[in-house]
Amino acid sequence: MSAKEEIHGQIVGALAGAKFPIKNPDELFNALPDGQNTTCKSGDVVLKASDAGKVLSSDDFPFSSAEEVATTIVDKAGL
Rank of each mutant, 00 (worst) to 15 (best):
S2L: 04
A3P: 06
A3I: 03
A3M: 09
K4I: 01
E5I: 07
E6F: 06
E6R: 12
H8G: 04
G9M: 01
G9H: 01
I11W: 14
I11Y: 13
I11F: 15
I11M: 14
A14P: 01
A14M: 05
L15M: 09
A16S: 11
G17M: 04
A18F: 06
K19L: 14
K19M: 14
F20H: 13
P21R: 07
P21T: 09
I22W: 03
I22C: 05
K23R: 15
N24V: 03
P25Y: 12
P25L: 15
D26W: 09
L28R: 07
L28K: 06
F29S: 11
F29D: 07
A31G: 11
A31V: 08
A31H: 04
L32G: 06
L32K: 05
L32R: 05
P33I: 03
P33D: 00
D34E: 13
G35P: 10
G35N: 12
T38Y: 07
T38F: 07
T39S: 07
T39Q: 11
T39K: 11
S42F: 10
S42W: 05
G43P: 01
G43R: 00
D44G: 11
D44C: 01
D44L: 08
V46R: 00
L47Q: 02
L47T: 02
K48A: 10
K48F: 08
A49R: 04
S50H: 09
S50G: 04
S50W: 08
D51C: 07
D51F: 11
A52C: 15
A52Q: 10
A52G: 15
G53V: 02
K54C: 06
K54S: 15
V55T: 15
L56F: 02
L56D: 03
L56Y: 00
L56H: 02
S57R: 10
S58E: 13
S58R: 13
S58Q: 12
S58D: 14
S58K: 13
D60I: 07
D60K: 06
F61H: 04
F61K: 01
F61C: 04
P62I: 09
F63Y: 11
F63H: 08
F63S: 09
S64E: 15
S64D: 08
S64H: 15
S65F: 09
S65M: 11
A66D: 05
A66H: 04
E67F: 09
E67P: 02
E67W: 06
E68C: 07
A70T: 00
T71D: 09
T72E: 07
T72H: 06
T72L: 05
I73M: 14
I73N: 13
D75L: 03
K76C: 03
K76G: 08
A77K: 11
A77Q: 13
G78K: 07
G78A: 02
L79Q: 03
L79C: 05
